[in-house]
Write a protein that binds this DNA or RNA. Structure first.
Lengths: 144, 144
DNA sequence: GGTAAAGGTGGGATATTGTGGGAGATATCT
DNA sequence: AGATATCTCCCACAATATCCCACCTTTACC
């Protein structure tokens, strides 16, 4: 289970370290793609396969599913962890998530999200304020 | 699995490089034809055979499937990769996809799409905006 | 608190890839 | 048939990505 968050820097070669704790879970190869809220999604090869299978079931003659599949696949990139556990962030993904010098890696169950530092600050600040009201909602529906 | 996208230039001889990562998947010979949304489809010989089989199963008496089959087959031709992994784009296909100096190669599971650069920009800009609808799609197929 | 291990960062050498161009073979037109 | 244009195969170069090793900081442990 991937949890917690880490702030790591991107070097000149656009590499970023995957936290050591997560490496055994993610494996040697991962797939990174554009996600939601200006973040990137990182999947283990196994998890990605599940998604890819579902996508390939969609018919390419339907216009909507075509554009959705293109969104998911065109920015996807199979990245190998190097000998010290880093992956490469392509230019396209880097600018999609608005990542500058530092990025935030967030553990989200089975996948990792990567955020640009500023974007993360903005998002989590806005979200912490509403955490109370979310907690209230959760208790109302009996989860917490 | 073919994923990601690359921007490559067409030289004076109308050749374009197939990304090195994809060559082992596509093989030495590919079939290129006019696709959907003003893009070209590139299949490995094996995948093309599947498509051709499916097309032949379609009813000849139906007007729509007839014209679709014609559309897929009439512009298809077999292209060999040269010694450094390039294929030739005929004038007909080049103008069909409105390819000028640069083209975008998009990995779509089992096939590659080739877009004119401007066309790709237009298309992806028009589609990336709707993150909500993407989230909806994701939950529909059970990813989130 | 000091020492050892582990994790994150940086940089250099090498191999690979994308692109351009040339020579020979093939086709086309007068 | 000859000349001209086109296509195909092959080689060369420059840019870039990949691999590998070394450093430095932080963490853990005695």
């Amino acid at each position: 289970m991937l949890i917690g968050h880490y702030i790591h820097g991107l070097d000149d070669k656009k590499r970023i370290s995957i936290p050591a704790k997560w490496r055994s879970i993610l494996g040697k190869k991962v797939v990174i793609t554009s996600g939601l809220d200006k973040s990137l999604f990182v999947y283990s090869l196994k998890e990605w396969q599940k998604i890819a299978d579902k996508l390939s079931e969609l018919s390419f003659t339907n216009k909507d599913t075509r554009s959705f599949t293109r969104f998911m696949l065109s920015n996807a990139f199979e990245a190998d962890l190097d000998s010290v556990g880093r992956i490469l962030i392509t230019d396209a993904l880097k600018s999609f998530a608005n990542i500058k010098k530092k990025a935030v890696l967030v553990g989200m169950h089975s996948k990792v999200e990567i955020w640009g530092e500023e974007e993360w600050e903005k998002y989590s600040n806005a979200n912490n304020k509403s955490a109370d009201s979310i907690a209230t909602k959760l208790s109302e529906i009996g989860i917490l």
